[in-house]
Design a binder for these strands. Structure first.
Lengths: 114, 114
DNA sequence: CCGTATTATGTCTTTATTGACATAACGCTT
DNA sequence: AAGCGTTATGTCAATAAAGACATAATACGG
């Protein structure tokens, strides 16, 4: 008899069968939006700036869309903020995920009597 | 403006926060059930017997449940068949996935006007 | 009793992903 | 002009995941 088994799920956005946006990018973009800096966002998520920058760059390339508008130097060293496209993708992803999450929790009770 | 973006999803079963069953195991177990042999199932899925066996073994360990009842030697070299527990897990996973898939397709139309 | 197809494992190689380090440029601020 | 914090990249190491290869044991059928 299987013990206490519980369901899990993950959602993402694709373009031509390739994953272009998932939870990691969502957290990263939201952190940039909050902090106004990719470096600060990376620190908040416990990753190196290099890694964060690489992920953003890769996503932009696959997506063919610019996600961050950044300026280097100046007061505080510079900073970055989300483009309109980034906000649009973020909005769609969040809406999609919220809906699926609700379904998951509903079905969960029907299939796995806790 | 983002191009043609489409949603994707994945579901799995957890035990104590650890993934114990997902799409790969499902396909493997179903193939074993159909063919009566782990070796044949592995070939069907384009993986080595070694890899298939390792995955089954790892899943059994994490799950604390036996998935395959096997006999070695004899006519045809032997074979394997699913245990009752394996069928139960498979049934739950399939039911769960089917439900979520339906939700995904429904929400998809609402969020991504195709 | 030998051939055969299968289960059952160990080990080693290759590959892919992630992470760490290093360096340059930039433009405010003081 | 010097300092600071940030963007922007290249490179290389570490770690993880997947795959390839090798070998033993088994039991049935001819």
């Amino acid at each position: 008899m299987p013990g206490k088994i519980s369901p899990g799920f993950k959602v993402w956005l694709e373009k031509e069968g390739e994953v272009v946006f998932a939870e990691g990018r969502k957290l990263l973009l939201e952190a940039v939006d909050e902090l106004g800096s990719l470096n600060a966002a990376a620190k908040k998520l416990g990753m190196s700036y290099r890694a964060a920058w690489g992920k953003i760059k890769a996503t932009e390339k696959r997506l063919g869309v610019k996600l961050l508008e950044s300026n280097v130097g100046g007061r505080g060293g510079g900073g970055a903020r989300l483009t309109r496209d980034a906000r649009e993708i973020l909005r769609r992803y969040n809406r999609y995920k919220t809906r699926i999450k609700a379904s998951v929790e509903r079905e969960c009770k029907a299939i796995f009597k806790k």
